[in-house]
């Protein structure tokens, strides 16, 4: 079983690059799975959480970084889907957005986001931010299952 991935839900190629770089710089060795829109994110979750065959299940992400402004299916809808379909699993989601809309943030928290953060403008600040989220991605026990496989 491979280490639990970090799921990055982001449609902006540049931001994908900066996130992957920041994670690497922060010392994160987890694989990063990128979903380019909300539907791809849900497709991943479906294969990870809901697949009937235990052996073929994809590992649940130890952390999901979710952009709110996505094509096809907005970030808030993704949060809603997770809350509806993955209620009994630990799926920590951090919302990262370039918008400062308080209403969107409030809504994200209501739908279960762990935190809502502004995307930093500078790549170094992004590294710091990813480091601050270390609690989510460095709790894996060596050789064992990622802790978020425990059911609530």
């Amino acid at each position: 079983m491979s280490a639990a991935p970090i799921l990055l839900v982001e449609d902006d190629e540049n931001d994908v690059f900066f996130f992957e770089r920041a994670l690497k710089r922060a010392g994160c060795t987890h694989p990063v799975h990128v979903a380019r829109d909300g539907e791809e994110a849900i497709a991943y979750f479906t294969k990870a959480g809901a697949a009937a065959d235990r052996a073929s299940r994809l590992p649940l992400p130890c952390l999901t970084l979710l952009d709110l402004d996505l094509p096809r299916m907005a970030g808030l809808e993704v949060l809603e889907w997770i809350r509806e379909h993955m209620a009994d699993l630990t799926v920590p989601v951090i919302v990262l957005t370039a918008s400062t809309s308080k209403r969107a943030m409030r809504e994200a928290y209501r739908l279960g986001a762990k935190s809502c953060l502004l995307k930093p403008s500078h790549p170094d600040e992004l590294v710091k931010l990813v480091q601050a989220l270390k609690g989510y991605w460095s709790t894996e026990e060596p050789g064992g299952l990622p802790n978020n496989f425990r059911e609530r």
């Binding site: 540049n14 900066f18 370039a98 995307k119 403008s121 790549p123 170094d124």
Partner: peptide, 21 residues
């Protein structure tokens, strides 16, 4: 204003990354 920020962040980001990396 919101949409203008995305490419700008890329400009800022990539030039900073070039210097750093």
């Amino acid at each position: 204003a919101h949409d203008l920020r995305a490419p700008l962040r890329a400009m800022l980001g990539f030039s900073s990354v070039l210097i750093a990396d």
